[in-house]
Design a protein around this nucleic acid. Structure first.
Lengths: 195, 195
DNA sequence: GGTGCTTAGTACCGATCGGTACGCATGGAG
DNA sequence: CTCCATGCGTACCGATCGGTACTAAGCACC
């Protein structure tokens, strides 16, 4: 997307502020000030604060196909390692300094109105995360892959929340071990033994 | 606490609105209007919006001792059933209509500033939840009860988030089964077999 | 050297935010 | 009937919200 120099600065600053301070809490004037830009530049580049927020959320989303492809190439024929790799990277991000939970979940919470376009955009991107986990567990010998993917999504979201309230490192480590152990209990032993 | 009639109406309405619409999104004027009360009545009864929010959060918190005592009386000598009961009740609340996640976690997300008194109050109450789970798993034969309690907390928070984005019923059911299965993998078999 | 197009900031808009000064109404005590 | 205390709402405060009208600055083109 062709942005003007002022638009670029706004985009860089807005992504950072929206994540660190929240979408709702952040005023357009603050974005303008920290970008060294006038407010009209923001509206010329993005139309409205909501549209800027939607762009921010879309960038925070993932592409299931892309990630699955990458991880399949890294661990061919080993779906368990593929999933472990994705979960490990999420855990790493959670433990990293400056992390403030899942930007998508945070935005959903910040916008209680289910019809609000910003919330809708956040939910759309979150749906893609669930699709990612669904595709990752699909090759595993599971009776109900959808359920397992949903549980992984729950653990990821839970780690993101607890990392903001308690200890991020503990949340990250807990996420990895919980997914691993939970998966063990769901893997269908008979089929996996066939091999 | 001795509240005037107007204060009582404010309290009833504020609890509901704060939960459904969020603390930050809710204006004092809206609370006054929906309470059929003038704004000064709110400030006379609670001092400020922040203090009203803190009161709301304190009411949403739990008393670990109280709950543990109740559940120990209901399932004496069966710590597994005690924990299952508490988790089941949380799951029930999540699946109930009108639920909008964990009010404490939601408030933490709504207030990115770690020093904000409203966020601090929310975190304090969340700490009590973690204490509750810690006390509940303490009688179980676990190598690291603190870790298991933390994982349960993660699952609860995760269920609360996913219930707002995907399907509340699925989150509730997933919470129950995930805690159960996860606990199985952590229970020290040798000691539990001794009986 | 104008001319027109693009890019930018200053200064303002109405609406809403949390919070308050002030006055009215009620009711028991003397 | 008076007096004072209590409980309450109208109307307002300055600050900030998202958004915009207007204008100045830069620049290719003739």
């Amino acid at each position: 997307m062709g942005l003007t120099p002022a638009g670029e600065r706004v985009w860089d600053v807005a992504r950072e502020i929206f994540y660190q301070e929240g979408v709702r809490s952040t005023g357009v004037a603050e974005i303008a000030e920290r970008s060294g830009v006038g407010k009209p530049s923001i509206y010329r580049a993005f139309g409205s604060k909501d549209e800027l927020a939607v762009a921010y959320l879309r960038e925070k989303g993932v592409s299931p196909q892309e990630i699955v492809e990458t991880v399949r190439a890294a661990y061919p024929g080993d779906p368990r390692a593929q999933l472990r790799r994705v979960v490990a990277e999420i855990a790493e991000a959670i433990a990293a300094p400056g992390h403030r939970g899942c930007p998508l979940a945070n935005t959903v919470v910040e916008f209680p109105d289910r019809a609000h376009p910003v919330r809708v955009a956040a939910q759309e991107q979150k749906q893609r995360y669930l699709e990612l986990f669904t595709e990752l567990v699909e090759p595993l010998p599971l009776a109900d892959p959808g359920q397992v993917a949903y549980l992984i999504q729950m653990l990821v979201d839970g780690a993101h929340i607890t990392s903001q309230v308690f200890d991020a490192g503990r949340s990250a480590a807990g996420l990895v071990t919980a997914v691993d152990r939970l998966l063990d209990t769901f893997i269908d032993q008979e089929e996996s033994d066939v091999h």
